[in-house]
Amino acid sequence: MTRNPVPTIVVAQLLGTSLWFSANGAADDLIRQWQISQAQIGTLTNAVQFGFIVGTLVFGLSGLADRFPASRIFAVCALLGAGFNACFALFADGIAMALPLRFAVGFSLAGVYPLGMKLIVGWVPDRAGPALAQLVGMLTLGTALPHGIRFAGGDWSWQATVLVSSALAVLAAAMILRLGDGPHLRPRAGAPRPGWGKVFEAWTVPAFRASAFGYFGHMWELYALWTLAPVLIAIGPLASAGSPAVSGLSFAIVGIGAIGCFAGGWWSRRIGSARVAAAALAASALCCALFPFAVGWAAALQLVLLLFWGLAVVADSPHFSALSARACPPAIVGSALALQNAIGFAITMVSIQLGSVLVDSWGAAVAWLLLPGPLLALLGLYPLWRRRITV
């Protein structure tokens, strides 16, 4: 048996999920060359979200996520995502052609992110919380990576930036295919395979419902912040819109969330996953409330607030997955996580689109649009964080 499979899984997650925001890393060029608006960049992001939702619904409701080896699903979907992403770079010449290709990338990612979580649980169920913290940390870096590639590439064309993400996803597929599945979630010989609708059994478990409702509130804030990060940077004194500094700062603000995930995984061993999630939700809610006032602050203070927000906003995410995986029956872990993701990402579509449309008129006050998410998440998670639950 592989001695330490977690590093392989989390690095593959980093490389595979670089596909997610590859268009956002090239947003300034797309706005200029295609003559589109910031709201349409939000629409491009939502095409990925919608594809991911449809994909996770298919995997979750059909039971496919638990019918076939997770490593094979991950590898096939990473390769498909790489191909669709490359087609976007090479052939898209406007928003009409780009939207279906970004949808296809999102659909492919439905076999990467939730199946990566299942791989973790299958290999190391006894330390799923800290391991999932590493996984989501790498998802966060993967999300930030297109901004970093764009910043490092300098004068690269936007197509080159996007194609780098495709190459990384191919490498991710090879890594996971070589690793294979862990021994802990393999179906017993002769056991029936999950069919359509079996996943709904998870929703009869109160602990699963509490974790899922916390996750849904968290998702209202998370991807909207990641999408709006370049705009929020340009609102204040940090950088002007279109400057290379926007890409570098966006990479820092999104990418620092990986440190939040790693720190939260360590902390969860002491106070429990539910309480770590609650602390992160409270911190990000505070940032939502403060940011509109920060526009008048010195640039250094505004940057500190944005970095702290980026740190806190995703630190809770792995703990929702760990709590949900712990609560639901083992035979439907993959399907339950996929369905939870589907609903959560459907929520992100609303907040992303609203934020992208309203930011021009609301300015920094758009942060208040995100505030109900962490507040409602704290309320939904209350049955779990009022007592210590360690995963």
Rank of each mutant, 00 (worst) to 15 (best):
L109P: 13
V170K: 09
L90Y: 05
A174T: 11
F151I: 04
P244A: 04
A212C: 11
A278E: 04
A133Q: 03
A207R: 13
F84Y: 11
K198C: 11
L44I: 06
I9W: 12
L306E: 11
Q353A: 01
A39F: 12
D181G: 07
A131V: 08
Q353T: 10
P318W: 05
I389M: 07
V11S: 12
S157F: 05
S321V: 04
I352M: 02
W196C: 05
L307F: 12
A172K: 05
V359Y: 03
M117W: 00
G373Q: 08
V58C: 02
T143Q: 12
F74I: 05
Y215V: 07
W309Q: 10
S165K: 13
S243M: 05
A160S: 13
N341Y: 00
Y223A: 01
V313W: 05
A299G: 15
C77Y: 02
L145Q: 07
S324E: 01
F107H: 12
G60Y: 00
A39M: 10
L369R: 06
D29M: 01
S243T: 15
W267F: 13
L354Y: 07
M349R: 03
W156S: 10
S335P: 03
G355W: 00
S243P: 03
P146K: 09
V162L: 06
P125K: 09
A229L: 10
G137E: 03
C328G: 11
F262I: 15
S321F: 07
G116V: 01
S240C: 02
G81H: 09
I253Q: 04
D316L: 03
R178V: 09
A365C: 06
L232Q: 08
G257A: 05
C328L: 12
H319V: 02
L232W: 12
P69H: 03
V76L: 14
L139N: 12
L135G: 08
V246W: 05
S62W: 01
G142M: 06
V11D: 08
